[in-house]
Design a protein around this nucleic acid. Structure first.
Lengths: 127, 127
DNA sequence: GATCTATTGATAAAAGGTAATCACTATCAA
DNA sequence: TTGATAGTGATTACCTTTTATCAATAGATC
């Protein structure tokens, strides 16, 4: 039998944080933000909830090279990310240049998907 | 005073492996290949040499999201990578669509560099 | 060849992020 | 309200990659 899922303040707080925030967040960021709603929230619960939300398809993992995984809602559609070299924050990009990408692969290679990451300085840090 | 650098069979073997191989390699791959030339080679020496070669600018680090760092020569110029979802190998791509990329960033964002990673199946694994 | 000391190799240990444990709490159907 | 049990929180354990340790080895200079 499938495990009976219960609604808890902790899960709701974690989901709310992911709803509100635009870009992908680190487990630690999520914890720091969700603690405001549920002060007793432990980091273990954040990891557990993220795992569950991933299994349920509500949340997905975003990996920036050399950094631990971040998490974001899956309902944002295909997009890529910008990583600020100053503040470390990750922002969503709206558009995608996927069109020409497949042509980059050598003959015989089969491209199923791709990742584009821009690096630089975000609006606040560039100023 | 700067540290006096000595030429050793170990360092030569590690550099040779990086010369011969096309794509970026994991420290463990480098070790496995270089051991053929210097059977006593330890993994610690691979890490030490990679660190030195990086400082000297001869080698740079390639990071595929969710994977440990790989290393490759710096003399290959600007290029990106293809990661095979089957065999896990990483291949170099020759071309780059950098042209349109800066337009992806929001107003006020300053793009300094970028990363493109294609995923799929390499020639051998697609067959 | 002798000497100095950078380098090595085996190992232990660190670092960073994640998962397991377990007693306690709180959800929810009855 | 009650009872069964999913969920929680603090902590420990874990896992993988990387670095530190240290006695032994081996380049480079004379």
């Amino acid at each position: 039998m499938a495990i009976e899922r219960r609604t808890t303040r902790q899960k709701e707080a974690i989901k709310a944080v992911l709803e509100e925030q635009a870009g992908p967040l680190l487990p630690d960021d999520i914890h720091r933000l969700a603690v405001k709603a549920v002060p007793s929230l432990g980091i273990a619960t954040v990891y557990r909830s993220l795992k569950n939300l991933q299994e349920e398809g509500q949340v997905c993992c975003v990996e920036i090279p050399g950094q631990p995984p971040r998490y974001e809602r899956t309902d944002k559609g295909h997009h890529h990310h910008f990583h600020c070299r100053n503040c470390g924050q990750v922002f969503d990009l709206q558009k995608c240049v996927a069109g020409g990408l497949k042509s980059l692969a050598p003959q015989g290679f089969q491209v199923t998907d791709h990742e584009i990451i821009l690096y630089g300085f975000c609006k606040s840090c560039a100023a």
